[in-house]
């Protein structure tokens, strides 16, 4: 699979740009967190496209960003569940 480039993204409409990035991110996240992959991908897609491209080129940066997202997601889920007694 050829790497996703900024020019490939620029040629697509904004909605499709996120789709393209998500399709690249999802399998990488799935390998780390199979049960949370869809939601983590959704969270990471809130990041700027240019930064997402950098993350795709840098596995270490992506790894730490995924761990960050997992921590935020878990904290969110805990606060959701404690809110309703």
């Amino acid at each position: 699979q050829e790497p996703l480039t900024a020019s490939m993204l620029a040629a697509a409409p904004p909605q499709e740009q996120k789709q393209m990035l998500g399709e690249r991110l999802y399998p990488l996240i799935l390998a780390m967190h199979p049960s949370l992959a869809g939601k983590i991908t959704g969270m990471l897609l809130e990041i700027d496209n240019s930064e997402l491209l950098l993350l795709l080129e840098s596995p270490e940066s992506l790894h730490s960003k995924i761990e960050e997202a997992v921590a935020v997601l878990q904290a969110h889920q805990i606060s959701e569940s404690t809110h309703k007694s």
Partner: peptide, 25 residues
């Protein structure tokens, strides 16, 4: 209130990404 129950939006491979509200043309 349960305003943030649906956060975060879930990405599903092969399906159009609908995490953001569509911008009306």
């Amino acid at each position: 209130g349960s305003s943030s129950v649906n956060w975060p939006p879930e990405f599903r491979p092969g399906e159009p990404w609908k995490g953001y509200p569509n911008i009306d043309p």
